[in-house]
Amino acid sequence: MTVSVKFNPGDQVVVRGDYPIGHFRTPVYVRGHLGVVVRYLGHFENPEPLAYCLQTDLLALFKVRFRQVDLWHEYKGSTADTIDLDLYENWLERG
């Protein structure tokens, strides 16, 4: 099976600013925020249908890096501090 990999390391991405009901592994604190793809991690079963024992296709997973000062207005620490999350392709748009 050929599977797509939409982003490359270095690409700027925005996490979808959606708040649907259900099981999602995209924490709310990064939704709507801009990050940078650090690397492609492989393809994994989509946890969203999987949580309901439904059949799933494989989704590309990316390590995405965010700047702490972009996520938290009152962040106390260095402007160089970062946070990495593993996010599925269906939550990412080109930034």
Partner: peptide, 15 residues
């Protein structure tokens, strides 16, 4: 120290 970057990793998926 401030010149050390603190990098948090939130294990949100299969890794």
């Amino acid at each position: 120290p401030d010149d050390v970057e603190v990098r948090v990793h939130d294990s949100t998926a299969d890794l």
